[in-house]
Design a protein around this nucleic acid. Structure first.
Lengths: 335, 335
DNA sequence: CTGTTAGCGCATTCAG
DNA sequence: CTGAATGCGCTAACAG
């Protein structure tokens, strides 16, 4: 079970290490048909696999890409990571994984580690897209996903938040909801692009310009204030039916909890829609109408555009692009 | 923005690379107080970070641990990974990530890759704990989690499936459910240890020895047969109320879907319990009584026992152990 | 076509 | 206490 080195198989095949190296790298033109066959056999017999770290040292390119995710616990994120791994595998890249647990400080540490880890490229799903650490990154070897900075200086692949919500709300309106009865529920916007874009889509579709229809929740605590706000809205007793749109699945959970506490039921007493499509949204009754995003492909997309940049030696200094991937509206019974 | 090497800072500090190396590795006794301080300053000023790949080559220990998970998309798994990353960070280890997408063949590829990646150790969350590939692994540098092989040859950290279910079912019985009215719903057991152990717990608590109370579902398709089975059971009209225990959250989803389709409601028409505690189980009404496992700590635990083995140079040839971590029962309103 | 020879960045003797 | 030399496994000129 000893580790074989390039020397061993060179000796066994009675050639130089250089020839072996050439074989390993597909430079078959630099050897006779005969030795090529001999090496092929030798390597298969001995089950030899070249050391990637030695190769990394020599070439200064270890074919690994570093990934920093905001929160691996988020179902969206884990699906993205799944896509990243899949695409990396197909391209022969290894992925070293890093998780910020939604903490900007940890995110800084992670990016620093990754930078010094001598990875070939970086994929970043940022906690805070405006984090100063990202200014130290080079667009030639990194791509960002999901959340974007106000000034895009790194290629960013994001879902089409604005249009998706705008269209979804448009559908609700067609179903009879009036602008003034529609509300957008979200975690504090905090300059997070996904939240802001979705909210922007809401405002655009409803024509509401102030923030009177923006309701905030926290993901911790009892959220009594939130419940009271919902109650107040429901009590207003307008002609039309109230419609709530939640910024993501967890926010929806809070809304459902509140509705339950207040004794309201959808879609009879109120209409509901949400960003994000989680498995339980299809099961609970009635199903939640929502916006589905193809997170797996977002991950695949990210590594493809990254590796493309990595391998295009000449064309350096790419100009940062914002790539928006489409979403899909799932109409179920919640409004 | 050039890359600094050990040579550079050796030159800058006017010492040899060996001294720098000693400093880097904490061998302060091998240099004067003076040069130590100088190096300390130099390194801080230049922001120098030693190359981990070069170090890996030289020491044959790159302080990275390879992780193979069965399915990163599973909320249980992503939480475990979160714990793994956290613990690795604290110990200065890098994690290279691998995902089998529930495919045994991919799992083989992943483990092979990892083995040749020259990682210091391996953590494996297996798709198939009996996969022959695992026989090529050494217990001195790997630990398995979640699922265990029939014959444990690698340290395995698993949740206490048997006792948890046994106790949970015991609680249901105390609430008035009769043995013959209790059913265990699961994906096909397929020799998967977690499923088998949970089922064993069910059988132990109910005293049912045959498989007449084992109901299987698939995670794909309409599961019409499953629905018809549920219907049949509900139609039996015994004195007591029927109680279903589902093997995990997704199976529960199928059960809820079926109940919905058939027009039954819990806890009035039927009692429900489940393994796994997902966020929506607390929200839907009534909440689902379930068995909660501390997946994050399972990951942490795995890293700690692995690194312990890796660093204990002398005591090799550890005897494989099965470590069971406790669970917690969450009583809500579903039965 | 094939072999020799330097490094890649660092750690580790072994002398001084 | 310090430094020169050697090697980790592999690649990349450069010679032959």
């Amino acid at each position: 079970m000893e580790k074989l080195t390039i020397k061993d198989i060179a000796r066994l095949a009675d050639v130089s290490t250089a020839t072996v190296s050439n074989y390993l790298n597909g430079n078959y033109s630099r050897m006779s048909e005969k030795t090529r066959k001999r090496l092929s056999d030798m390597i298969r017999e001995t089950n030899y696999v070249p050391s990637s770290v030695a190769r990394g040292l020599a070439t200064n390119n270890n074919k690994t890409i570093g990934v920093s995710v905001a929160d691996i616990t988020n179902p969206f994120t884990s699906t993205v990571l799944s896509g990243i791994y899949d695409a990396c595998g197909k391209l022969g890249y290894t992925v070293v994984f890093t998780n910020a647990s939604s903490d900007s400080q940890i995110e800084i540490d992670n990016v620093n580690k990754l930078k010094h880890q001598e990875v070939s490229g970086l994929i970043i799903d940022p906690v805070d897209a405006e984090n100063a650490i990202f200014k130290t990154l080079n667009n030639d070897s990194t791509v960002m996903i999901d959340r974007q900075a106000a000034a895009v200086r790194i290629d960013s692949i994001v879902t089409d938040n604005f249009n998706a919500v705008s269209q979804f709300i448009g559908d609700m309106k067609k179903s009879g909801y009036a602008d003034e009865d529609l509300y957008f529920i979200s975690w504090p916007l905090q300059n997070v692009s996904t939240r802001m874009e979705r909210y922007r889509g809401f405002k655009s579709a409803t024509g509401i310009t102030d923030d009177s229809h923006l309701i905030l929740v926290d993901d911790v605590g009892d959220n009594e204030y939130f419940v009271s706000q919902i109650k107040q809205i429901m009590n207003k007793k307008r002609n039309g039916k109230v419609g709530f749109f939640t910024m993501n699945g967890r926010v929806l959970l809070h809304l459902l909890k509140a509705m339950q506490k207040l004794g309201y039921r959808y879609p009879d007493d109120v209409g509901i829609g949400s960003y994000e499509d989680l498995d339980w949204m299809e099961i609970i009754q009635p199903g939640i109408s929502c916006i589905h995003q193809d997170s797996f492909n977002l991950g695949v997309n990210a590594v493809n555009t990254l590796v493309h940049k990595l391998q295009d030696e000449k064309t350096k200094h790419f100009v940062p692009q914002l790539i928006e991937v489409p979403t899909m509206i799932k109409k179920r019974g919640s409004y």
